[in-house]
Design a protein around this nucleic acid. Structure first.
Lengths: 245, 245
DNA sequence: TAGTGGTCTAGACCACAAA
DNA sequence: TTGTGGTCTAGACCACTAA
């Protein structure tokens, strides 16, 4: 299991250890949205650190939207908001659940290809390099929602084509079999017209508008790992966003 | 001018006062990107507060992307990144400058209208209420970039139609004449097909795709103030976004 | 070696919510 | 009145950078 106390001999700062401890409790469902977490005084006792250190950790969790504080009352687990959907990396499955759909996947294509020029630059690899291309049709309540094209550097994930991409989430495969975690990403959002070849897959008209997204995802080591193109049906999919001053 | 010291008798916490002081120096260009700001020890001396208080302020500014720290070296003014464009409220003018265009504006319409049903809900006002509608064509390097429709509650800004919306930024008018600051917003991003009536204004074909955005902006008091629709030419405008785990 | 930011402590007083 | 989070202080030691 996950450690539940702070190792004072570790090189890791206390606050980072405590952060991981509390974060795991939230992620693993030990605490659920609406729950009050132990007051600062108890956390101080439990983990044998000062109030400033506890507050440093809680500040981070508040900033990340995991918890919220109410003066005089306590600190609570936050309810996931739509805001997080646009700034956190989430899977298609998770996204659809948040939107109240039942997700589904059909694999349209899975093959090894030579790197196209436009993708080579995005993934910072030479043109000769082999890529794995995985093309999937995504369904929501059984109806087409989007087409996704994933491109992975073959060298990073040999034999990945042995997996069934309709059943097993790609991120889970990368993490379990290759030790690669996708921790950050950059993406561009555009509106485009269908170029014709997706009309059948998405069940849309020849001229329909699509919400189009290109994303480069980076591993925990900071290297680009995946290039992703998503074509969303504009009549079914919208993005949501919160802004501040 | 803006106060440059902390009022220890004020009800405002020190850290909020110091935050405003430093933020103004950045915004007004007193410090420019790449500049090193005074070390914590100097800020402590200058403003007569403890190190924790100084660091509390710097933490906020780091979080908001205004500054970055380098251990052993110093704290520096950050260069604005594209990331801020999608999570901060910025004006069209500012946006175009960041993208390397020269902005321009033509006013297409400015009038008082009764509230349409769909907007009444967004602005949380009754159907009978009067709205000010301002429709503007936005240009980048002289070519059409987008059409914006702003809707304001007339009661909040009487006589606003006397202004020249091609010359004076709307946000500046609201702040100077009516004391209204737009501090947060929620928006939805979609892809749509032109409905025909914008083809002339945007110089696009009858079936072109548009990036479409609907935004509700809130004042410092938390009330919805403006409803905004923007129709971007999809061939000229894209959104950029960074994600994390 | 001197100066910077990074982490941590122990203690204080305040403001707010609920009993 | 009690317990919660909000703000603040003074001091300490460490890790990194540059001279």
């Amino acid at each position: 299991m996950f450690p539940d106390s702070i190792n004072k001999l570790s090189k890791l700062p206390y606050y980072q250890q405590l952060y991981e401890i509390l974060r795991q409790k939230i992620i693993l469902g030990d605490w659920v949205p609406g729950d009050m977490i132990p007051p600062e005084s108890v956390l101080i006792e439990t983990y044998q650190v000062s109030r400033n250190t506890v507050r440093q950790v809680l500040d981070i969790l508040v900033n990340e939207g995991y918890i919220y504080r109410q003066r005089g009352k306590g600190t609570y687990i936050a309810h996931p908001t739509l805001e997080q959907t646009t700034s956190r990396i989430i899977s298609f499955t998770e996204d659809m659940h948040q939107r109240g759909f039942i997700p589904g996947t059909n694999v349209l294509d899975a093959a090894v290809i030579p790197t196209p020029e436009d993708i080579a630059g995005q993934l910072q690899i030479p043109l000769g390099e082999e890529l794995v291309k995985i093309k999937r049709l995504r369904l929501a309540d059984g109806e087409p929602m989007s087409v996704e094209e994933s491109y992975l550097v073959h060298r990073n994930c040999p034999n990945i084509l042995d997996h069934n991409f309709a059943e097993e989430p790609l991120r889970q495969i990368l993490e379990k079999d290759y030790g690669i975690r996708l921790v950050s990403a950059k993406q561009v959002i555009k509106a485009i017209q269908t170029s014709g070849n997706l009309t059948d897959e998405l069940k849309i008209s020849k001229q329909a508008a699509l919400l189009f997204l290109e994303r480069v995802s980076f591993s925990q080591n900071g290297f680009p790992v995946e290039f992703l193109r998503i074509f969303y049906r504009a009549d079914r999919y919208t993005l949501y966003n919160e802004l501040h001053d």
